[in-house]
Computed example of a mutant assay.
Amino acid sequence: MAERAPRRAGRRAEAVGMAVGVLVDALIGDPRRGHPVAVFGRAASALERRLYGDARHRGVAHTAICVTAAAALGGLAAGATRRSPVARAAVTAAATWAVLGGTTLAREGTAMAELLEAGDLDGARRRLPHLCGRDPSGLDERQIARATVESLAENTSDAVVAPLWWGAVAGVPGLLAYRAVNTLDAMVGHRSPRYVRFGWAAARLDDAANLVPARLTGLLAALAAPLAGGSTGRAAAVMLRDGHRHPSPNAGRCEAAFAGALGVRLGGVNVYGGRVEHRPRMGEGDGPETADVRRAVRLARAVAVAASTAACLARWVGLPRRGRARGDG
Rank of each mutant, 00 (worst) to 15 (best):
265 R>S: 14
288 P>A: 12
267 G>E: 10
276 V>L: 05
201 A>L: 05
222 A>T: 14
223 L>M: 15
211 L>P: 01
273 G>A: 13
201 A>H: 10
279 R>Y: 02
287 G>D: 04
193 P>M: 04
213 P>K: 00
291 A>Q: 08
237 A>Y: 03
238 V>E: 05
229 G>P: 09
256 A>C: 04
291 A>V: 08
263 G>C: 10
278 H>C: 10
219 L>G: 01
201 A>G: 06
198 F>E: 03
246 H>G: 01
291 A>M: 07
201 A>P: 08
277 E>F: 11
268 G>M: 15
269 V>P: 06
260 G>I: 05
222 A>W: 02
208 A>C: 07
268 G>C: 11
267 G>T: 02
204 R>F: 13
216 L>I: 03
209 A>F: 10
282 M>L: 10
228 A>K: 04
194 R>D: 13
241 R>C: 02
247 P>R: 00
196 V>W: 05
283 G>T: 00
235 A>C: 11
199 G>P: 15
196 V>L: 12
267 G>L: 09
265 R>I: 06
227 L>M: 09
234 R>F: 06
275 R>N: 14
262 L>Y: 02
213 P>R: 07
286 D>I: 00
271 V>R: 10
198 F>T: 01
259 A>K: 04
257 A>I: 01
230 G>A: 08
275 R>D: 14
229 G>T: 00
196 V>N: 07
237 A>L: 09
269 V>W: 05
286 D>W: 02
235 A>S: 15
225 A>Q: 11
233 G>N: 10
232 T>G: 04
262 L>A: 01
276 V>M: 12
284 E>P: 00
283 G>I: 01
235 A>T: 06
260 G>T: 03
